[in-house]
């Protein structure tokens, strides 16, 4: 049955009437394939293993994970790689920043700022209008006597 669904051959149905619709749908499709010898058994197995209850309850039991802002996703990927490469650091990384609402808002602002800057560069705005600076690190290094 899973194979049939994966192939897009049948559509999962809910409701008592659907078992018979499912049988009819599979029968018409599988008859052409000719290699399904125990079609009623396959359908019955799939039917009794189907998710129980209305779709809304299933969704509430497994709420979709909200998408992270892209900048947060990038940083989390970097954390995950660091944890793999340096296991001793794994527990010291502040994983909670990916669930903290204030931090997530900060990442959203970063995404918005990046989009604004890139759009401005594409339309030819000068760097200073976009709050960008070139050579800023060099200036700070010189001011601190580090260069």
């Amino acid at each position: 049955m899973a194979t049939l669904q994966a192939a897009g051959a049948v559509t999962p149905h809910r409701g008592l009437w659907a078992k018979y619709q499912l049988r009819a749908e599979c029968s018409s499709r599988c008859a052409r394939w000719g290699h399904v010898s125990d079609l009623p058994g396959i359908i019955d197995t799939a039917w009794y293993a189907r998710p129980k209850g209305p779709t809304t309850m299933t969704a509430a039991a497994h709420p979709a994970k909200p998408a992270l802002p892209a900048s947060a996703a990038a940083l989390r990927a970097a954390f995950e790689r660091t944890a793999r490469e340096r296991p001793e650091l794994a527990n010291r990384l502040p994983w909670s920043i990916f669930t903290d609402p204030d931090e997530l808002a900060r990442f959203q602002r970063l995404d918005a700022e990046a989009a604004r800057v890139r759009q401005g560069l594409r339309s030819g705005q000068p760097l200073e209008e976009l709050d960008l600076v070139e050579g800023g690190l060099q200036r700070i290094l010189e001011e601190r006597g580090l260069r």
Partner: peptide, 12 residues
Amino acid sequence: ILYDRGGWYTFR
């Protein structure tokens, strides 16, 4: 350096 979707890079 690691690249992730959305155009963001990280440098550890």
